[in-house]
Design a binder for these strands. Structure first.
Length: 353
DNA sequence: CGAATGACCGATAATCAGGT
DNA sequence: ACCTGATTATCGGTCATTCG
């Protein structure tokens, strides 16, 4: 039997009731009073015929699509994990989620946005790196609710709000951690000082060295994609005359941390004795590698749920956060229309004593 | 021939009606 | 008056038919 053509008309005929009754039984059980016998007849007919709800028709009538759009700059690493959590959180709230990657290309961004708006999504969740300010403003003036995430230093008025992970603060803590572990000198390595994500982290690192008054014992490096980490390691060792270990490295993400760490080990240096290395993202392997990689954990669940709740009820901004215990920091803080989520340091062997 | 009209897709919300 | 279930208008677009 071809279930795709079974509609409530067929179910109504089979159950000897009206189509409205079928709709009421299948979708509004708790609100509409109905006889037990009617409910049983309809449910049985629907089951026998293999009825499947047509959400397109429902959207047409309800003037809501119950679909949300998620725009990311890509699918790798953090973005994929984020999409997974977001999809599940949206599903829990009765929404479907369409996920697109803009590949950091304004033309692709425009095409995806247009496609999502044509389908009348009920709201958009957009990564700061996936969006231009102009197209974001255009959407907002169109009336589609929009919440940004990881959109640092965006104009306040541009969307309902932004839900950001506070990598800047995490890097400040990172510097302090490396210092507390006895690092004579600390360095930051990142891909590009023009990338908004890198700017956040780099800025946090520099701020961290300033707070500890160790600007003179620190440095930042820009690492191109096909870079030989060996050269950098040689430079650092020369800089220290080989006797001011350990050297602390805060990397842009876990992948860069591993590339540095593995090259250092290959060259015979001890981790964490001579180099202490930490990353950001707390990726799957950070926990299971040897040595385990110290990293900054990203509270995906919290970020996704805050963003979704805000998107679906724009008039109700996120409630103030409460620390779960006195020794734990606030899970997040709110400044204007921006939520900053605290990202905790997970300390492992790569920076251990 | 192009323009205007109306039926139609499937489900739903609002309204209505029949039976106790 | 209260339940329960039926009727109807409607959503926004497409397509076939009719009209001038």
């Amino acid at each position: 039997m071809k279930n795709r053509n079974i509609t409530i008309i067929d179910v109504a005929r089979e159950a000897q009731v009206s189509t409205a009754t079928v709709s009421n039984v299948l979708n509004r059980k708790s609100n509409i009073p109905m006889a037990e016998e009617t409910i049983r007849k309809v449910e049985e007919a629907a089951k026998n015929l293999g009825y499947r709800r047509n959400v397109l028709a429902a959207s047409l009538s309800k003037k809501h699509s119950y679909e949300l759009g998620l725009l990311l700059p890509g699918f790798a690493g953090y973005f994929g994990s984020f999409a997974e959590v977001m999809e599940s959180a949206a599903h829990d709230r009765g929404y479907r989620l369409a996920v697109y990657s803009t590949e950091s290309d304004p033309m692709i961004e425009k095409r995806h946005l247009e496609s999502l708006l044509e389908r009348r999504v009920d709201g958009l969740l957009c990564h700061g790196l996936a969006m231009s300010h102009d197209s974001t403003r255009a959407i907002v003036s169109d009336g589609t609710p929009l919440v940004l995430f990881n959109a640092w230093d965006w104009p306040e008025d541009i969307a309902i709000g932004a839900v950001n992970v506070d990598f800047r603060q995490a890097c400040i803590y990172g510097v302090r951690h490396l210092r507390e572990q006895g690092c004579e000198w600390v360095g930051y390595i990142g891909p590009s000082p023009t990338n908004a994500t890198d700017i956040q982290r780099r800025g946090g690192f520099i701020e961290g060295t300033r707070l500890l008054r160790i600007e003179e014992q620190s440095g930042c490096f820009v690492i191109p994609a096909e870079f030989d980490y060996g050269t950098l390691i040689d430079q650092l060792v020369a800089l220290h005359n080989g006797d001011r270990y350990p050297i602390g490295i805060l990397a842009f993400d876990d992948a860069m941390a591993y590339r540095f760490l593995m090259k250092a080990m290959e060259k015979g240096y001890r981790i964490p004795g001579q180099f202490k290395v930490m990353g950001i993202n707390n990726s799957y392997y950070a926990k299971f590698s040897y040595p385990g990689l110290t990293s900054v954990d990203i509270p995906y669940d919290l970020q996704a749920n805050l963003a979704l709740d805000w998107l679906l009820s724009p008039s109700a901004p996120p409630p103030p956060s409460k620390p779960s215990s006195p020794d734990i920091k606030e899970p997040y803080s709110i400044v204007g229309t921006t939520v900053n989520i605290y990202a905790p340091l997970i300390i492992r062997g790569s920076t251990g004593a």
